[in-house]
Simulated assay, not measured.
Amino acid sequence: MTTAIGFKDTDRKTSELLEDILHSIKGEHITLRDLLAMMGESGLLLLCAFLSLPFLFPVSIPGVSTVFGAGIVLISAAITVNRLPWLPQKVADRRLESGKLRPVLQRGVTFLRRIDRFF
C-alpha cells in the first residue's frame, strides 16, 4: 500500500494561487515584496524552475550558470528556513505596474492550467 507524502503548503495548485493573486491586485502598483509574500513557497519553487531552464540547453552562455545557480541556492535556502529570500530594500520595494503585471500573470495561469493535468 502506498501513501501520499502530503505536503502541507502545496495543497493548492499554483495556477489557482496565481489566479487569486491576479484578482487580489488592487491599485496601480504592487511591490515585489508584496508579490513574493502572496506567492509564498509555491511561487518560490516556480521561480526555481524558471531559473533552471537555461541549464537545459546544450550550449551555455558564460556566467549564466553561476548567477542562476546562486539564485537557485539562495531561494532553496530561504525555503529551507521557511522565510522569504532576502532582497535589498531597493529591489524588494520596487513598484511594479499592475497593468503590465496582470497579462503576465494571466499567461502564467493559462500555461499552468495546461500542465496541471500532467501533475
Rank of each mutant, 00 (worst) to 15 (best):
M39D: 02
G43M: 09
I5V: 13
V67P: 06
D9G: 09
T31E: 11
G63P: 05
D34E: 15
V59T: 06
I5A: 13
S52P: 00
E16N: 03
S24E: 09
P103L: 06
H23F: 04
G43W: 01
K100V: 10
V109D: 07
I61N: 05
G27E: 13
G108C: 13
R102V: 14
L56F: 10
G40A: 05
I30F: 14
V91Q: 05
Q106K: 15
P58V: 03
F50Q: 12
I21R: 10
L22A: 03
V104Q: 07
P88Y: 03
Q106T: 11
T10D: 07
T66E: 13
A49R: 15
R107Q: 15
R33D: 12
G27Y: 15
K100S: 11
D20G: 06
V73K: 09
S24Q: 10
N82P: 00
S42M: 13
L105N: 00
D11Q: 14
A77T: 05
E19I: 00
P85Q: 13
E16C: 01
S52E: 07
V104E: 06
L46V: 04
I79H: 13
H23S: 08
E41T: 14
A37W: 08
T110D: 15
A4Y: 00
L35V: 06
S60W: 07
F111D: 12
P62R: 09
D116I: 01
G63A: 06
G63M: 05
G99T: 11
I25H: 07
R95V: 04
L53M: 10
C48M: 14
Q89F: 04
K26S: 12
L56R: 13
L17H: 03
I72H: 02
I79Q: 08
L112I: 01
V104M: 14
R95Q: 13
L32N: 02
G108F: 09
F68R: 10
N82Y: 01
L36G: 02
I25C: 03
R117K: 14
L22I: 00
V91T: 15
F68P: 02
T80L: 10
L51E: 09
L56D: 09
S65A: 10
K90D: 09
R94H: 11
F55L: 08
G69K: 06
S60Q: 15
R114M: 12
A70Y: 11
M39K: 03
A78D: 12
G6V: 07
R95T: 07
V104I: 15
S15E: 15
L45D: 06
T3K: 09
G108P: 11
G27F: 15
I61R: 07
L35A: 00
R107G: 04
R117P: 00
V67R: 11
F118Y: 14
V104T: 08
A78S: 15
M38F: 05
G43S: 09
V64G: 06
L112W: 09
R107K: 15
Q106V: 08
V59K: 00
A49G: 12
A4F: 02
R33P: 08
A4D: 12
D34F: 03
A70D: 11
T3Y: 03
R95L: 12
P85T: 12
F57C: 01
Q89G: 10
V109E: 05
L51H: 10
T2R: 12
R95G: 02
Q106C: 04
T10L: 13
